[in-house]
């Protein structure tokens, strides 16, 4: 319950944060809202040399828009994200997904960037980022770069953010007309992590699905897209069509087994939840 001793810095700019990170060496740890890191520290499952607290860097806090995207500072809290008018208007899937994360107190501290950079395979927001083709702005010693969602999530708790880098912001494409969204989260208790989650975004044309994006939570080391189902969904106009396309939802995934769900059951859930998520996104269920 008592963490190991560590140093602590609270930089006020991204450059200061990068400098702290560099000075701290390989055991330096970035803290966003700390809601994933703190339990790990308390259980002494991590022993950072320095904690670089990025929760008070102005550039990393807040939500703005440009013509095509809603841009969210990485240190913006879940609570701010899910209640933000721009997010609710232009990126409703993200608002919906975020409202399922943890509980109100944790959402007051936890940050979007923290959750995405932590990249827990059972985390919800990576699936929103995948389904929405979000873009990640990463700052490092040699400058800044932008990474697409499909390249951002690398492996268990591993992203494109290097050890000397910081996730600064995430840009979500604005929803255009015709798109519908839904996140279907399945967990044993309200507090538990998603056993499986499915984020669906579909564009309807003439009562048929013209384009579908389906991202799966906790079906692989990272959130993954159900690409064969996405392809099969094009042209679907009934729940029966959607159910047929959803049969392939777990193709190419590699779900784990634990005491709450084994791989076989997760694969089954992926199909059922994909059907339900797409059905609701398409307003057909």
């Amino acid at each position: 319950m008592i963490p190991v001793a560590f140093d602590y810095t609270q930089p006020s700019t991204v450059d200061e944060a990068l400098a702290s990170l560099a000075a701290g060496g390989e055991d330096a740890k970035i803290m966003g809202g700390g809601q994933s890191l703190m339990p790990v520290l308390r259980l002494r499952m991590a022993a950072p040399s320095v904690v670089v607290d990025c929760s008070r860097i102005d550039e990393m806090i807040g939500i703005c828009e440009d013509d095509t995207h809603v841009i969210i500072g990485a240190a913006t809290t879940h609570h701010a994200v899910m209640n933000d008018p721009l997010v609710k208007k232009y990126v409703p899937l993200l608002a919906e997904v975020t409202s399922t994360v943890a509980d109100p107190a944790i959402r007051h501290r936890g940050t979007l960037g923290g959750a995405l950079a932590h990249a827990d395979p059972a985390g919800d927001q990576p699936s929103a980022a995948q389904a929405l083709n979000a873009q990640f702005l990463i700052a490092g010693p040699s400058g800044r770069r932008t990474v697409d969602a499909k390249d951002f999530f690398v492996d268990y708790f591993t992203t494109a953010v290097g050890p000397d880098e910081i996730l600064v912001s995430v840009a979500f494409p604005k929803q255009s007309d015709g798109w519908g969204y839904h996140y279907e989260k399945f967990s044993r208790t309200a507090q538990a992590w998603a056993m499986v989650g499915v984020a669906a975004a579909v564009r309807m044309e003439g009562g048929k699905i013209a384009e579908a994006r389906v991202a799966l939570t906790n079906m692989a080391p990272t959130s993954v897209r159900a690409t064969s189902t996405e392809a099969a969904l094009v042209g679907a106009s009934t729940m029966a069509d959607i159910a047929a396309a959803s049969v392939n939802a777990a193709d190419g995934t590699s779900p784990t087994s634990d005491i709450h769900a084994d791989a076989e059951y997760r694969a089954h859930l992926a199909q059922v939840l994909t059907k339900r998520a797409v059905g609701k996104a398409a307003a057909l269920s």
Binding site: Y8, D53, I106, R109
Partner: peptide
Amino acid sequence: LLDGRSVKSCSVLAVQ
């Protein structure tokens, strides 16, 4: 309540 909002005080450092 931290600045008026609920937080879990086991998940916040005193320095924060």
